[in-house]
C-alpha cells in the first residue's frame, strides 16, 4: 500500500474512510478478450460486458478498438485508462502514417503502447492485446500485461474471464488454422468464458484482419451464439 495515502481519515466518531475503496467504483472491463494468429492473419475476439461493481454499466460494449487500419487492440482493466492509452497510440500511428507514407508495423504499434504502459505503470491498470496484419510481417499478436512488458505470442487471452478458459484454449489450439476454424475457436472460447465468468457476458464480437482488410462478426445470445447476425461479415 502506498505510504500515507491509502489510509484516509480516522474521524472523531471512529469511522474509518478508506479512500482506495471509494475509488473502486470505477468502471471496470471485467472481461474476456483474445487474439489469435491463423493462416491468413489474426482474429480478435471479446465479450461485451462492462461492469461497475455488480452492476452492468454497458451490456453491448465494443472492446475491440482500432488503433490503425490493420492493427486493433483488445482492452482489459480500467475502461478510462485503456481508452486513453488506445487513443494516444492511435494518434501516434496516424501521425506515423502521414509522416512516413507507410503504416506502422504491428510490432511498432505494440512497442509504443507498451512504452506508455511501462512508463506509467504506477498509475495505470491496463492489460492489452495488440493484433494486426501487415503485408511484410503477416499476422502478429502481442500482449502487454499489467507491468508494461511486451510479449509476442501465437495467441493470447486476457481479462477476468480468460482464467476460466485457459486450459480449453491450450487444448484446442492449433497453428495455421483455416479462417473458419479460427473463427470457431475464438467464438467457442469466449462463449465458455461468458458461461463461467460473472464479469463477462453479452454478445461476442470478432474482428478478422487479413490482406482483405478488417471484417467484423457479431454473435448474440438470441440464438445461443450459433449463427452470426449476418451471413456476411460486416466490412469496415
Amino acid at each position: 500500500m502506498a505510504y500515507g495515502r491509502s489510509a484516509g481519515v480516522l474521524n472523531a466518531d471512529g469511522i474509518h474512510v478508506d479512500m482506495q475503496a471509494l475509488k473502486a467504483g470505477e468502471v471496470d472491463l471485467g472481461t474476456t478478450i483474445m487474439a489469435v494468429t491463423f493462416k491468413d492473419g489474426v482474429i480478435l475476439g471479446a465479450d461485451s460486458r462492462t461492469t461497475t461493481g455488480p452492476v452492468i454499466a454497458n451490456r453491448v460494449t465494443d472492446k475491440l478498438t482500432m488503433i490503425d487500419d490493420n492493427i486493433w487492440c483488445c482492452r482489459s482493466g480500467s475502461a478510462a485508462d485503456t481508452q486513453a492509452v488506445a487513443d494516444i497510440v492511435k494518434r501516434h500511428l496516424d501521425q506515423h502514417a502521414v509522416h512516413h507514407g507507410e503504416r506502422a508495423t504491428t510490432g511498432q504499434a505494440a512497442s509504443i503502447l507498451a512504452e506508455i504502459c511501462y512508463a506509467n505503470k504506477d498509475m495505470l491498470s491496463a492489460g492489452l492485446l495488440v493484433a494486426g496484419w501487415h503485408p511484410r510481417y503477416g499476422g502478429e499478436v502481442y500482449q502487454v500485461p499489467l507491468g508494461g512488458s511486451l510479449h509476442k505470442e501465437p495467441w493470447a487471452i486476457s481479462g477476468s474471464g480468460s482464467t476460466y478458459i485457459r486450459a480449453l484454449c491450450y487444448r484446442n489450439w492449433r497453428e495455421n488454422m483455416e479462417e473458419k476454424e479460427a473463427i470457431q475457436y475464438v467464438k467457442e472460447s469466449v462463449r465458455e468464458a461468458i458461461r463461467n465468468d460473472g464479469s463477462s457476458g453479452g454478445v461476442i464480437r470478432l474482428a478478422v484482419l487479413t490482406a482483405r482488410g478488417v471484417e467484423r462478426w457479431l454473435f448474440t445470445p438470441d440464438d445461443d451464439y450459433s449463427k452470426p447476425t449476418d451471413d456476411k461479415p460486416q466490412k469496415m
Binding site: 501465437p154 495455421n176 490482406a211
Partner: peptide, 28 residues
C-alpha cells in the same frame, strides 16, 4: 529488414510456422 527482424527487447515468439498471411514481394 525484410520482415524477419524482431522488436527490440520483446520476449516470446509467434507461431513456430511463422506469421500467416505475409504478402510476397520485395521488402527491405
Amino acid at each position: 529488414g525484410s520482415g524477419d527482424e524482431v522488436i527490440d527487447g520483446v520476449v516470446g515468439s509467434g507461431p513456430s510456422t511463422g506469421a500467416g498471411g505475409k504478402v510476397d514481394g520485395k521488402h527491405g
